[in-house]
Amino acid sequence: MPFREVMEAKYRDILTKYIKEQSESTLYIGQKFSRKSIENQVTPEEIISLHKMILQEIYPDMPEYVVHSFDILLEIMLGYGFAYREHQSLRDQQKELRSEIEIAANVQQTLLETKIPSVEGLDIGAISVPARLMNGDYYNFVEDENDCISIAIADVIGKGIPAALCMSMIKYAMDSIPANRNEPSMLLENLNRVVEQNVDRSMFITMFYGMYDYARHVFSYASAGHEPGFYYDGKNEEFSEIYAKGLMLGIDKKTKYRQYEKNIHPGDMIILLSDGVTECRTDEGFVEKETLLNYIRKYIHCSAQEIVNNIFKDLEKLQDFQLRDDFTLIIIKRRV
């Protein structure tokens, strides 16, 4: 039977029982009743009129002033009723928005999808996890005909939906830059002009762009203000920062980028990351660079994909599973 039809009888029952014996169990039944009535969208003022009506039935000679007092209570509760209905409709709207964002996040995933190239002699692993629904970090691999793999890793300053939309634009700008201009410094200069002209003035992008020539095992790279990665020297078992200076994209259209080169030997690694990795925060403070490098050392004998997965798991745990920033980590290992 619909709740509204039995509501009156039920409430009468609870009220008379409680007036008679004031027991805990009746209070509990009252709680259950209120859950049911909320579920059935009964407003607060409806409950009060019900209360007043039943009380008048049980006590026909109830003093006038008590009856009047209910009228003023009723008037005051009207406002709560409005607020409650507004809350209901906002909740519905929020549900709708959330499902739209989820769809957008899926579309973004598809748009930005990239495949990790498989090349003999190289072991590559990559992970990118958004802090919220949509990812403002981005990485991309391209394999060309000249025995080169290009690797881009970028972070849009700003988070959430605007950052994600911006990232999709960058990906298309990158794809439309002719292949012969793929030299890292040239690519960043071209991209910088696109961003400077087309992106909102409070939105900026940092990007590291590298090109790995797997015939010669030379890694050339340039950076537009991106968090520096690390180079691991396999022979001496030492890490060093991959230093590359450059202004982030979208600030000055005349910016020039310097290109650097590094020879990669068997057993060496290139580690690229976003600031979500280095800006990891725990209750005790930031995760220091040494801590991160120790995690890499801990898993150094695993495959590149296992290393990045394990480090993400460890750092996520360290932060109590609450990512504050998008997290992206890429490892390129030259096989021994």
Binding site: I157, R201, M203, F204, T206, I251
Partner: peptide, 16 residues
Amino acid sequence: YMDSTGLGVFVGVFKS
């Protein structure tokens, strides 16, 4: 503490 979002604000203000 300041993250990259804060940096974005200062760059925007700087350009303006």
